[in-house]
Design a protein around this nucleic acid. Structure first.
Lengths: 101, 101
DNA sequence: ACTAAATATGAGCATATGCTCATATAATTA
DNA sequence: TAATTATATGAGCATATGCTCATATTTAGT
């Protein structure tokens, strides 16, 4: 196969794909997304379940927010996060399921 | 949901998933795996198609080999690589396809 | 045996990543 | 209004990552 025959895999597609995979390439983000795939969660709740500092969790949520993988709603002082990309959750579940086999 | 209710997502599963996603989280490795998903390739061929140095490609192949995502056969001086994890290729194709929408 | 070709590998370097620590912000409550 | 609660954010640091450069290894050809 010649070099020019690969043009259908555009640089944009490759970059976008690597961004998606990068989002899933960290244990903490996997746990957060998995949690959110089951229920809406406050930051504090995530912090307790994952036994991590509030700051670390918040930074990761900021990361996921920038990639539009999660969104949140506010209720007073509490921020409730949900996932915002069905496809990414599907891919995550698929890989997790496959690993258990 | 309480903390202990998440025990079914084992640390091993999370780590293994993050390893898989990490393998796909780099543009070069995406291109290599995509290429290999289409045809068996020599190192030299990959180097030419991706317009990268032999060393950089070889290092990435070594990385993918360690994760058992690719395998190779030797023919004289030439090493022909193929992918070795159908599921990872499926996930890659799925994400790439979704991005194009 | 000598040289060339194809690939692998170690060291080093610049950048990215994921955390901590301190602090900012905003809403709630006393 | 002051204190508390919930979250966000910037700086800094240790480690990881992905490349280059030089070199090793293995096979083929002369």
């Amino acid at each position: 196969m010649k070099q020019q025959d690969h043009s259908f895999l555009s640089p944009e597609s490759v970059d976008e794909a690597s961004r998606v995979f990068k989002a899933l390439a960290d244990p903490t983000r996997i746990k957060i997304l998995y949690l959110l795939s089951q229920e809406e969660c406050s930051v504090n709740h995530i912090t307790e379940v994952l036994e991590m500092t509030q700051s670390a969790v918040s930074h990761q949520l900021s990361f996921l927010r920038n990639l539009r993988l999660v969104k949140y709603r506010r209720e007073g002082n509490t921020f409730y996060y949900t996932y915002d990309d069905e496809h990414v959750i599907t891919v995550l579940h698929q890989v997790l399921k496959h690993i258990k086999c």
